[in-house]
Design a protein around this nucleic acid. Structure first.
Lengths: 252, 252
DNA sequence: CGTCACTTTGAGGCTAGTCAACGGCGGTGG
DNA sequence: CCACCGCCGTTGACTAGCCTCAAAGTGACG
């Protein structure tokens, strides 16, 4: 933030990190030394569009990981019945490909949800940088364990209602919603593929939430009206039996 | 394996890794230098019994991670309705506490499933060792991403049948079953808490598998009779619709 | 203006959870 | 020794939540 511009802005690798709008980008955090180390390994940003070839495919040897500059991307696999199962959505500042960093083989395919830009981080350069600047491996480990926590959260046996409520609360935070207003980058189908719900269930729940005054939404634009109740719904405080007994469709 | 005994066997830390029966233990793999580094950070083994105080509790500051020598341990949280949700089972060679290594705070509680022994690895000593011997961080990262993969697998929306089949195949491998015979360390309730299934469902599925000639089991002792079909069941090749249409309870 | 992707709504069925009851087993104590 | 208790495992009946199938409405785009 308080860092002054430097002469290497837009240097040979052309990342221009010092003018990058992504404040949560890894290159903007940590000590000066680690920032410099990041700058060394970052390759220029590239644009990725929905429908364009994936950053990497499942089972491929991982050449690079990616730091999201703008837009939204997803990693996914083809599960049962050829259905898409989304492992994660990636917003500006997030690192894509961490789970494969030490495996060499990727478990999922990475594609854009909307028009996006990413910075390329060649694995070889990154690994050699890790030896010189331990802070880098710390940041990587942080993001890795964050993703582990999210995966575990997803595996909890929550109701469809709890899943979607938690998802919306999380997305509002990650998208830095103002006054509860934000725009989901992904389709209902994508939301379902991520939360392991049918597209129709997601749609019905949006309707139920709206009817109960929790939020308003027009297509992908969402406004959270009652963040408190929505958060309460997300947490498994009211468990299954209670909710079932309450006989209240979707919301108390 | 081919390593000869050394004079530091049973040295001040008393781990006696060179005579340790756990061949998959981290201290037995890798270069000699990394092995030596591991030996430095390992504290003597300790015994843990079911019912004895946990290695650590959820939310605590992580003092040490643990390397399993023998027995079986589990990490778990109390989810909705006060029900136990098991994050993972740990068998000889596994490291416990990795997910909290970089967070400082543990997400789960670690207790013994059966009488077990673990080696203590103080976090401070481990972290300082990481700087000196990068290979250590590599092994840690490997196990971390392995756990990430397992968490993702668990979050897949598989049927109860697929979950249990996959679990049994995996346990047979991890327990190094001979002729498909092995003994599950944990109760049906624990299996359910791990797979996110009701205890009764687990029990019913064991019965169904047995009726279909996939396995035989008496209490916790299991013999897999048809590993091929069991593995096929575990994979989401036959998807929901087909299975439902087939009208075959549990197995075709 | 037709196509296509996305979304919404309705009807019905299946999976697995809940509730309940019972048998077996090991430990404990009278 | 046996009665008692708690934990584990099993089985049956019922139910609810969510998926599947089907159809129709909307907007973007060529």
């Amino acid at each position: 933030m308080a860092l002054s511009l430097r002469s290497n802005t837009g240097s040979r690798n052309g990342t221009g990190c010092w003018t990058c709008p992504v404040h949560s980008c890894l290159a903007r955090q940590g000590t000066e030394a680690s920032v410099a180390a990041w700058l060394e390994v970052l390759a220029p940003r590239v644009a990725v569009m929905p429908g364009s070839p994936p950053l990497f495919r499942a089972g491929a040897r991982l050449q690079s990981i990616y730091c999201v500059r703008g837009g939204c991307l997803k990693t996914w696999v083809v599960g049962a019945e050829g259905k898409e199962r989304i492992h994660g959505f990636y917003l500006p500042g997030d690192l894509i490909g961490l789970d494969a960093l030490w495996n060499a083989r990727t478990a999922s395919t990475a594609t854009a949800v909307v028009a996006s830009q990413v910075c390329v981080v060649p694995v070889e350069r990154l690994k050699s940088a890790v030896g010189r600047e331990p802070e880098i491996s710390l940041r990587i480990a942080e993001q890795t364990s964050r993703q582990l926590a999210m995966a575990l959260a997803l595996s909890a046996d929550l109701t469809a209602e709890q899943r979607l409520a938690a998802f919306l609360v999380q997305m509002a935070a990650r998208l830095e919603a103002r006054n509860g207003v934000f725009k989901l980058p992904m389709t209902r189908r994508d939301v379902g593929a991520y939360l392991r719900l049918a597209e129709e269930t997601v749609s019905r729940l949006f309707g139920a939430f709206e009817q109960n005054g929790l939020l308003r939404c027009v297509d992908k634009a969402v406004q959270i009206l009652d963040a408190q109740r929505l958060t309460a719904l997300a947490e498994p405080g009211l468990e299954r039996r209670q909710r079932a007994g309450a006989r209240s469709p979707a919301v108390a």
